[in-house]
């Protein structure tokens, strides 16, 4: 826990160090202007980080340019065959450099909770605090081979630690580290994202971190390919690899097909088909994912 708090403190310190001088310089009329182009802030993923639905993207959330602050809140609902997921959270983007996010995920086992011996409607709650820093590159302005690249971490803590331990998880909290690269090929209207994540998470942490089978950090991949039909409408797919750390259940890679409609710079809607495979021994968890984001 100490190291998590330390890393959070370092991140916060870095953010304040960047933000305060810039705030002092900036004029109030432009500080919160949505100066980036439509859709270039992406949407918010299931962990609360700027990205797609299940994948993490490099761009800093919101529409703030390097002279401004952007921010948003989101709500997401996914209805799977046997479970449902709700996430809500908020994110802030500082000067197109730093992204700070908070996300709460509620994983409702519904009637299946009874079958799993947890009790009908048993819900796992997960809090995620995320920080991302853009290292270099710009999605729009770099049309050569240079992608936009960011690095980040997500501190995640899930409740019901005793149950997670009982099914073999080594911890109810953990930190994921990632490097994300995003490339917009404007001349072919294609957006590509690739992310390398170091994680111990079981089902992104809903089933804890580490397990009886594996308890080490493993590299995982998140990829997304999107086609821009217009300034405000994007269609794509995602793929996210996962480890199988727990002995009692296997864990599958996640896939989505999505469409995102950016009504304007303040509101976006994402609709997706998601295929999450086996979750806690229950197979074929496919379903519909709907997310709304409001911000600037």
């Amino acid at each position: 826990m100490k190291q998590y708090m330390l890393s959070c403190a370092i991140t916060l310190g870095a953010v304040l160090g960047l933000a305060v001088p810039a705030l002092a310089q900036g004029s109030s009329s432009t500080m919160f202007e949505s100066g980036r182009l439509l859709a270039t802030g992406g949407v918010t993923n299931i962990e609360g980080t700027g990205g797609g639905g299940i994948s993490t993207w490099a761009p800093i959330t919101g529409y703030g340019t390097k002279d401004a602050i952007g921010g948003n809140v989101h709500g997401t609902y996914a209805r799977l065959a046997n479970f449902s997921v709700v996430t809500t959270g908020a994110g802030i983007g500082l000067f197109d450099r730093v992204e700070l996010t908070y996300n709460r995920l509620m994983f409702d086992t519904g009637p299946t909770g009874g079958k799993l011996g947890l009790g009908r409607g048993f819900t796992f709650n997960q809090d995620v605090v995320g920080a991302k820093i853009r290292l270099f590159g710009n999605l729009v302005y770099d049309q050569g081979y240079l992608p936009e690249v960011s690095a980040g971490l997500q501190y995640k803590t899930t409740d019901h630690a005793n149950i997670l331990k009982a099914v073999g998880a080594k911890n109810h909290e953990g930190v994921d580290y990632y490097v994300a690269a995003s490339k917009l090929f404007l001349d072919s209207s294609i957006l590509v994202n690739a992310t390398l994540r170091l994680t111990k998470a079981n089902q992104i942490g809903i089933l804890g971190f580490g397990g009886d089978k594996h308890n080490d950090y493993q590299p995982q991949f998140e990829g997304s390919l999107a086609y821009l039909f217009s300034k405000d409408f994007v269609v794509g797919g995602e793929y996210r690899t996962k480890a199988s750390n727990l002995g009692f259940t296997k864990e599958d890679d996640w896939k989505t097909l999505y469409g995102a409609y950016f009504i304007n710079k303040n509101v976006s809607l994402t609709l997706a088909y998601v295929s999450l495979g086996t979750i806690a021994t229950i197979k074929n968890q496919q379903g519909v994912y709907l997310s709304a984001q409001v911000g600037f």
Partner: peptide, 16 residues
């Protein structure tokens, strides 16, 4: 994982 990352970008660069 490294292969998947490389393949994604190789595919993208090819398109480009």
């Amino acid at each position: 994982t490294a292969f998947l990352v490389a393949a994604t970008f190789a595919a993208a660069i090819h398109l480009h």
